[in-house]
Simulated assay, not measured.
Amino acid sequence: MTLIEDWRAVLHKAWSVKFNVAATLFGAAEVAVAIWKPDGMPNGVFAGTAAAVSVFANVSRIMAQKELHGNDK
Rank of each mutant, 00 (worst) to 15 (best):
N58E: 08
A29H: 07
F19P: 01
K13N: 12
S16C: 10
V45N: 05
D39R: 06
D39T: 11
I62Q: 04
N71C: 03
I35N: 09
F56S: 11
A23D: 05
A57Y: 02
V45D: 04
K37Q: 15
H69G: 08
E30G: 09
V55R: 07
A14L: 03
I35C: 09
F46P: 01
K66H: 12
W7K: 05
A9W: 00
A32H: 15
F46A: 08
A50K: 05
A34G: 11
R8C: 03
G40C: 11
K73G: 15
L68N: 03
F19R: 06
A57Q: 13
S16L: 03
Q65P: 00
R8T: 10
G27H: 10
L25I: 08
H12Y: 07
T49I: 10
L3K: 06
N20C: 13
M41S: 14
V31C: 12
D6Y: 07
K13H: 11
F46N: 10
V59N: 13
A50I: 04
G40T: 14
G70D: 01
V17W: 03
A52V: 02
R61P: 00
L3H: 14
E67Q: 02
I62A: 04
W15K: 14
V31I: 12
I62H: 06
A57D: 03
V53C: 04
N20M: 07
T2E: 15
I4Y: 15
M1G: 09
